[in-house]
Design a protein around this nucleic acid. Structure first.
Lengths: 181, 181
DNA sequence: GTGTTTTTTCGTATATTTCTGAAAATACAG
DNA sequence: CTGTATTTTCAGAAATATACGAAAAAACAC
């Protein structure tokens, strides 16, 4: 399957690459992910490199990143020494893994940082009180969201899908008003 | 309130700026947002420029961006011709507005793009069928999430907070298993 | 072990984004 | 209207992130 044969495939890959850049994922990583998502068989690094016209070394680095996210796995093809790579195609699974990894990399350290900062502010004593309050509120807020995301991530997929489809109607279970539309 | 007087404040601003860069928000925008979040009164552009050592013009651009997100508003101070700026300090409100704007800018166009792409693939006819399926699934998935986010955004804040605190326990309402921990 | 294929590392080149400063535009007071 | 304060625009400079290619390392066959 040569991607240049289908402009639609190329368009998807380019769009996905751009999306990546808007969300802090580098373009090559996102493009390779898109390519593997569309592929119906595992691809080796050389193929990827040629298809996307990226340096072989760049592909290597990007694949490591995708594996760190847990959304691409290495597989082997009989009679071929080269590593082959396949993307997770279950989109819920993919989303959960990306969110878990980004939480680990960025959110957890931020929570720790805010806790430490609040401590330092309290020790110092002479910082205007509203500063401590704002920092505390941010800490608590991010912690609450992060904790919620951890719980949601552990839900069985079918439960998650049901909840999602329910949308704002879940509000009725906590005594909220019926949603308007 | 001179931020250089408190290294904790500066640390918060720098951290927030870095967070921004990891999520596709430019550093100056995020830093200014952090400063305004901590400030207990509206600040004018010149103050911001001096506090953060950013060019006045850069501050102007960044403030426009923050206003486009709806998380900073322009106010006026009696007897001062200059515009003053204050950040939304309710973190739920802030989060909802950021997510609404990012959806508008990035997700909605992506949904439209995927729909259009699927259409083109169907018309063309000779694209391998699994490609069309993968694109369709991605389209549906993103649409479902986006629709869910719209509904959640419309929920009254107290309802939202209750749901969040409930965490994985909401699963019981859709016949899911009791969460483990 | 040696030779060959494949992958990774890493310093540097390139591309991209961000920031600046000067100039233009706007808003307002008198 | 004229003059002054304030804000915005925009082309180029600076900073940052990304991608490359050469060389090293690793994996494997023989």
């Amino acid at each position: 399957m040569d991607i240049t044969a289908f402009p639609e495939i190329e368009a998807f890959i380019l769009h996905w690459g751009e999306m990546g850049t808007h969300w802090g994922v580098n373009r090559s990583v996102a493009q390779i992910h898109a390519l593997l998502y569309l592929a119906d068989r595992p691809l080796h690094a050389e193929e990827i490199s040629e298809s996307l016209k990226l340096a072989r070394s760049n592909v290597s680095t990007a694949l490591k990143e995708l594996q760190a996210y847990g959304i691409v796995r290495r597989t082997h093809v009989a009679g071929d020494r080269r590593d082959h790579f396949a993307a997770e195609t279950d989109l819920w699974e993919m989303t959960m893994r990306i969110s878990a990894e980004r939480k680990r990399r960025e959110i957890d350290p931020t929570i720790a940082f805010l806790a430490e900062l609040k401590e330092r502010i309290d020790v110092r004593g002479n910082v205007p009180p509203h500063i401590g309050e704002r920092i505390s509120r941010m800490h608590e807020f991010i912690f609450t969201l992060a904790d919620w995301s951890d719980q949601v991530r552990r839900l069985p997929r079918p439960t998650l899908v049901k909840l999602m489809k329910l949308g704002a109607k879940v509000a009725r279970f906590v005594g909220g008003p019926a949603p308007k539309a």
